[in-house]
Design a binder for these strands. Sequence first.
DNA 1: CCTTGAATATCGGTG
DNA 2: CACCGATGTTCAAGG
Lengths: 255, 255
Amino acid sequence: MTKNLVNPNNTDALEFIKKNHTNKPDKTMLILAGDCLIDYKGRARSLLDWGERVIMIKQDGTLLVHQPEMREPINWQPTGSKTEFKIKEDKLVLKSYIKKPPEKMKIKFRNIKFITAISLKDKAKLIISGMELDFVNQIINNPSIIEEGLRVVKREKPVKSGMIDLFCYDKNHTPVIIEVKRSLANISSVHQLRMYVKDTKKDVDKANVRGILCAPKIPDMVKHLLLDYGLEWIEVERKIMLPDDKQKTLKEFAE
Amino acid sequence: MTKNLVNPNNTDALEFIKKNHTNKPDKTMLILAGDCLIDYKGRARSLLDWGERVIMIKQDGTLLVHQPEMREPINWQPTGSKTEFKIKEDKLVLKSYIKKPPEKMKIKFRNIKFITAISLKDKAKLIISGMELDFVNQIINNPSIIEEGLRVVKREKPVKSGMIDLFCYDKNHTPVIIEVKRSLANISSVHQLRMYVKDTKKDVDKANVRGILCAPKIPDMVKHLLLDYGLEWIEVERKIMLPDDKQKTLKEFAE
DNA sequence: CCTTGAATATCGGTG
DNA sequence: CACCGATGTTCAAGG
């Protein structure tokens, strides 16, 4: 089902919408573009002056307002919002609202360029690789990336001041705390690591506990701070691989 | 300019695109929907199986792939990407790529539901209120929210381990460090605050420096940690207001 | 250019 | 339901 209306007047637009869109999970999306003014109030408050945008109302009630540039919607309503249309003072007005969190948006149109109603079926889930978990797994599967003789004892070990990514022992049986960052390491990761080492010293009652910050990239500033605190670091490259059973699909896709 | 094509075959689709879309900043957006398969490789790697989605190519090269639910695009390409279309093995194929950061995406269609080409003009900027800065201003304008006799001396004071949101003195001339969070405070804000207090004790050479965590909401766990470290907290409600000169526009907008 | 931190963050997982 | 942490975060601001 795909229906389309180009440059409609208000009355035709409203009629088209009433006919092709409801708030029931009716599996119909609405995409429209036009010159509009937008007022939002909820967790924050905003006002967007007249301009031409694309508005997408998804099948779950999500509403997106997209300007002609940038990745992010300039305004939006979250999943579960309800949408209402009416004509007021000769203008098409859209209202979207949701109770939790309380948020409402009002869009007033003075011109509509097109409206499309469409029903989409998509149950596919994204298969993705290259996230922090994969990075941690990469280390668990091959601790020698960090250093020879390292033994990973526990992942996600809770201590007083937070959660240790990897709790290990080195070849001399000294406890080693590893804090993993999948991208740029920052000062706050140093503070975290420092706290974890301190907590662990108390927990295991040992004076010697090592702390290693592991990331693909560590700025000099952060390295200096690590040195100050007697901590270590290692820069490890991240591997990006999809599971083997997907390799076939990928090959089929190849250029 | 708004052009539309419903349920086209590959050849017609490609012809329509060639005619209405280029990689020059030509002020033409493309919105299309169809059954497709998506491969992405860049900072991560992903594969999305066949399904019906909406694809939006913005005037700055941004590409968004939207499934029929959820706010976030399931796949995307950043601002500045280039898009190419061709027909391969009787299927329409879209390729988008960008050099920095290196990212590419390939979308293969086995069916196209519609294509819309549209040119949008929008120079409006969002006027927004209710962000962290507003929250900090709220405290500066009325420090008694925190406590009577508090005097704010500096906003954004740099210390060794980071940046202090508000540096103050209380009515007894004791330094007070305030860390502000506009929403939920977490453990990491406690660590920050603790470091700032420690740094400040050294800087001003005083044994007594107070630290206050200020947020609309602070979980019990965080409060316990603050107590442990001899730090304080205060839960303050956030006010959300647009500037006075916008109030008129808002009134005009009112229901 | 790099680095930092906010966001109407969103979203999934866990207890 | 509250809370926590990751994100191909994105984005803007500041050095």
